[in-house]
Computed example of a mutant assay.
Amino acid sequence: MNRAALFDVDGTLVDTNHLHVTCWWEALRQAGHEVAMHDVHRAVGLPGEDLLAHLLGEDRDTGEDERLSAAHETLYATWFDRLPPFASAARLLRELDRRGWRVVLVTSAKDSELDALLRAVDAADAITATASSDDVDEGKPAPDPVHHALGLAGAPARGSVLVGDTVWDMRAGTRAGVSCVGLLCGGIPRADLEEAGARAVYRHPADLLAHLDRSPFAAGAERAG
């Protein structure tokens, strides 16, 4: 039976969350919206439309969404050639691939951003497939992206594991029936990740790699076997 190792990318494999915070904050500021960076940080990981609804409310002028998203994308694109991967991110993916896991990236990033993130991670040889927000009707925290990723891997939810850094990742994975692992490197507190469904929490990819044999990946291998 195939086993899927599902990974969020922003804030999980690549150190980009605070870049997104700055770019969204600036896009909102330019449009006349005063939003605290702390609030933007807690919304990172949601698809753009959902992020704006979370920050500005469901009763906002939705006709402005496209312009705000385009401003964020333009600002963020200036960093595409220097996105910093977390230490051991590529090694973690390659080790899971070596152990027989099908590695699929599950991200709210659009395809243009995903290309830059893939270059930053630099582990294409270990990645079975990628699933972006463009592939589903509803993004995280809905389970749709996780279900889609499992389909790409040809793997059931049972025995599969999702690694992410936000509560949106944990909620999506929990609703899809996979085991969830949280990473603290995206800046979200351990308690929030655990409350949202994380079975285990590690500091960053290198910490998870060092403890892989005692992580939910070890338990997932046993359940899938």
Rank of each mutant, 00 (worst) to 15 (best):
A43L: 05
A43Q: 06
V44R: 07
G45H: 05
G45S: 11
L46Q: 04
L46W: 01
L46Y: 04
L46A: 04
P47Q: 00
P47G: 00
G48V: 05
G48M: 06
G48P: 05
E49K: 09
E49T: 13
E49N: 02
E49H: 13
D50F: 00
D50C: 00
D50Q: 09
L51W: 11
L51Q: 15
L52H: 03
A53G: 04
A53R: 14
H54A: 15
H54I: 11
H54M: 15
L55T: 11
L55G: 07
L55C: 08
L56M: 05
L56C: 06
L56H: 03
L56V: 07
L56N: 07
L56W: 03
G57Y: 14
G57I: 08
G57K: 11
E58Y: 00
E58M: 03
E58H: 07
E58F: 00
E58S: 08
E58P: 09
E58L: 07
E58C: 00
D59F: 05
D59Q: 14
R60A: 12
R60I: 12
D61E: 15
T62P: 12
T62E: 14
G63W: 13
G63I: 08
E64F: 09
E64K: 11
D65P: 07
D65W: 00
D65R: 04
D65M: 05
E66S: 14
E66F: 14
E66Q: 14
R67P: 02
L68W: 14
L68M: 10
L68E: 13
L68F: 14
S69C: 01
S69P: 00
S69G: 03
A70E: 13
A71P: 11
A71F: 08
A71W: 06
H72P: 02
H72E: 12
H72S: 04
H72L: 05
H72D: 03
E73K: 10
E73G: 12
E73V: 10
T74K: 10
T74S: 12
T74V: 12
T74Y: 11
L75G: 03
L75K: 04
L75Y: 14
Y76E: 01
Y76G: 01
Y76P: 02
Y76A: 01
Y76K: 01
A77W: 00
A77R: 08
A77P: 06
T78I: 01
W79N: 09
W79S: 04
D81C: 02
D81H: 11
R82V: 04
R82N: 03
R82W: 02
L83R: 08
L83G: 08
L83W: 10
P84G: 02
P84H: 01
P84V: 05
P84S: 03
P85A: 09
P85W: 09
P85M: 06
F86C: 03
F86M: 01
F86Q: 02
F86A: 02
F86P: 01
A87V: 15
A87Q: 15
A87I: 14
A89N: 07
A89R: 04
A89H: 03
A90S: 13
A90V: 12
A90D: 11
R91H: 13
R91C: 12
L92R: 04
L92K: 03
L92W: 14
L92C: 10
L92N: 05
L93F: 06
L93C: 09
L93K: 06
R94Q: 06
R94T: 01
E95P: 06
E95T: 15
E95D: 15
L96R: 06
L96G: 01
L96V: 02
L96N: 03
L96S: 02
